[in-house]
Amino acid sequence: MIYLFEYAILVLFKSYEYFPGVFKDDYFDNVLGANVSNGFIVPSVTVLIAVFDLGFWWIILITIGFFGIEELFLYLGVYRHFWWKTIYTSICLFIFFYLGKYLWRMLRYHVDRFTLRITVLYFVNITIQGTFMFYLVAIFHLFFFHVNWFDDPSRDHITLVTLYFFIDSIFFSLVVVLRTYWFWHALLIIGLACVNLFLHQLGILKVSGNWVLGLLTAFQLGELFLLMYVRKLLHNAVLP
């Protein structure tokens, strides 16, 4: 869920910037820093808090720890704020940690709810697609979205490709949760392949070779099977 939040404050409104020094492209470098922090570290800590049911003072202590780390990053010059402030991070983390505990309880006791399964699979799909596609582009430069929304072409790419995931994840989650016949699964993959081809013909999706279009379709097919497996895990979930 943090990906939606980061899309607003980081990509659209440029709240802060990381400088890990891994990629030559400054914007991809920035997204890498944000992805490690908000795509791995914060969710992992949230899961720990939820599973072990850590209380108020533990959450306060962990939040203070994140506050100190962010201030240290600012001091070391590997991170900087534009309009964002460290106190905003602390407030958001405190809310996210409690939201994580709430969602964990929902998964344990109400996993059979249709809306909950749709929500879980929707965000699972966003996370997997967003993370995988980012590294695929940042490392191998296989494809690139270009729409001239921003002066920085890399920011342009991240903005559109993330929006793409937000939209296609709706269809992925619906098809999987409704357990539709194979026809609808095939229609989804073929439809996405047609969308990719159409965007390529418009010049919005630029690829290093036509075979990349096939690779994207293969990945989306793999994503469908992965979501079906996650749905099975949710279906088999039982109370302790």
Rank of each mutant, 00 (worst) to 15 (best):
H141G: 11
V147P: 01
Q129S: 13
H185A: 08
Y181C: 11
F150N: 06
I158Y: 03
I167H: 02
I170W: 10
F171V: 14
F172M: 09
L160N: 06
F166M: 14
T162W: 09
T127P: 02
I190W: 06
T180V: 11
I167G: 01
H185L: 07
V147W: 03
Q129I: 09
D156C: 08
F150Y: 15
Y122R: 02
N148A: 07
F172G: 01
A186E: 06
W184C: 00
S169K: 07
L163H: 07
I189R: 07
H146N: 13
I128S: 06
V175F: 00
I126S: 01
D152C: 11
L187Q: 07
L121P: 01
L136N: 06
H141K: 15
W184P: 00
I170G: 04
I170C: 13
F165K: 14
R179L: 04
Y164Q: 13
V175T: 15
F150T: 04
T159F: 15
V161H: 01
L174D: 00
T180Y: 04
V177E: 04
F145S: 04
I128P: 05
L142E: 06
L121I: 04
F143A: 09
D156W: 07
D168V: 15
F123D: 03
T131D: 03
V177C: 05
F145K: 08
L174C: 03
V124C: 12
